[in-house]
């Protein structure tokens, strides 16, 4: 294994191991996801048709919020115990470090959300024919959320009340993911072709895959000064 891949792999496995040893923390986001989504019927009433129509939007919006909730700790723990300084000083490019952290975040937050989403869809009486599309759209959309989230988390390091700031920075950037994620699901449910929306979700993912590590690394560097 080359040195580059070695550093990436080492950081990824360390973050996964940390998440595994603190399972309670890692499961908070998915718990929030289920709980917040379960609140809507209390607000709008239990009418099955209304809930079925709302399902795609509610699932996506609450997934977005659940991801936000978990972003603050993405770099903060490493910032506080000095690890981030050493990562900036490690020979591998900082962009790879950001990518490894974002991937670990997606594996520990995005993946459980994808697993829980069909459950919520059933609670909302959504047509089961839409379930495959729900999983596909979330699998393509949630990585973008982790990537843009990593930029927001890196920018707010050392800020007062960084946890409140992150949503303000990240939510507007996530609107396209929300739009196309819901649109893909809506199209599948009403018998239209969801492919264009899925392609846009994929394009957003590829775009953030390129840009987020650059911006995140720049943000981490300036956080060290």
């Amino acid at each position: 294994m080359s040195g580059l891949a070695h550093g990436f792999w080492g950081l990824l496995t360390r973050d996964l191991r940390l998440a595994l040893r603190r399972r309670a923390d890692a499961s908070l986001a998915v718990l929030f996801f289920v709980l917040a989504a379960a609140l809507f019927p209390f607000g709008v009433g239990p009418e099955p048709n209304l809930l079925a129509r709302m399902a795609p939007g509610v699932i996506w919006v609450t997934a977005l919020l659940a991801v936000l909730l978990s972003l603050e700790r993405l770099f903060l723990a490493d910032y506080e115990d000095g690890s981030l300084e050493l990562m900036v000083l490690a020979p591998q490019p900082l962009e790879m470090t950001v990518l490894a952290k974002a991937l670990a975040h997606w594996l520990t937050t995005g993946l459980p959300l994808i697993a829980a989403a069909p459950l919520l869809a059933l609670l909302y009486n959504m047509d089961p024919a839409g379930l495959p599309m729900l999983v596909v759209a979330m699998a393509l959309g949630t990585p973008s959320l982790s990537l843009t989230g990593a930029v927001g988390a890196a920018l707010t390091l050392g800020a007062r009340r960084g946890g409140v700031l992150i949503p303000l920075l990240v939510l507007p950037l996530n609107i396209p993911v929300l739009i196309f994620g819901v649109a893909a699901l809506d199209a599948a449910l009403s018998g239209f072709n969801p492919l264009p929306h899925i392609m846009f979700l994929g394009a957003l993912f590829l775009g953030s895959l390129v840009l987020a590590p650059l911006a995140g690394a720049a943000a981490l560097r300036q956080a060290m000064e």
Binding site: I175, I179, F180, L204, G207, A215, Q222
Partner: peptide, 24 residues
Amino acid sequence: RAAAILALVGFVNVPIIKFSVEWW
């Protein structure tokens, strides 16, 4: 510095957001 990075990220995103809102 942080705001400068955010402004550039936002600037790249403005056309994307505008396009997706129009689509929506």
